[in-house]
Amino acid sequence: MKILQLDGTLNACQIEQLGAANADLFQEEMQAAMSPELKAIEVDFSDTSFLDSHGLGALLMVHKTACNRHGEVPLRLLNPQPSVQQILELTRMHRIFEIVKRPVVHETT
């Protein structure tokens, strides 16, 4: 898992799964990485093959913390795989998080 902030956007990528094993860690690291100039959060789900209720809870907590600290902050989920997108749609999380399909540019450093 890699977390970095670019121009007010907090990016998380290289997440193979978001479940019981790492959801708390993901939440803690994302919350710790939120800077005062945070404008948006983007979580790249293109490598994520597994998402469960722990992962959904962590995403909700990250979004809630960001909104409490910085006002309305959109949380975008980039390029989810079909199985993950199905969970997001069936749980109606697509009404909370923006699901975006677009190429993701990772910082190489």
């Binding site: 209720s53 722990h54 959904l56 809870g57 962590a58 909700l60 969970i87 069936l90 749980t91 109606r92």
Partner: peptide
């Protein structure tokens, strides 16, 4: 509930709601 299995405590926060909606589907 699923939240009992996951966290072991009865609660009504975002995480409990996430477990509840996940269980529902």
């Amino acid at each position: 509930s699923l939240a009992d299995a996951a966290v072991g405590v009865e609660r009504f926060d975002e995480k409990a709601r996430a477990h509840a909606c996940f269980y529902a589907i």
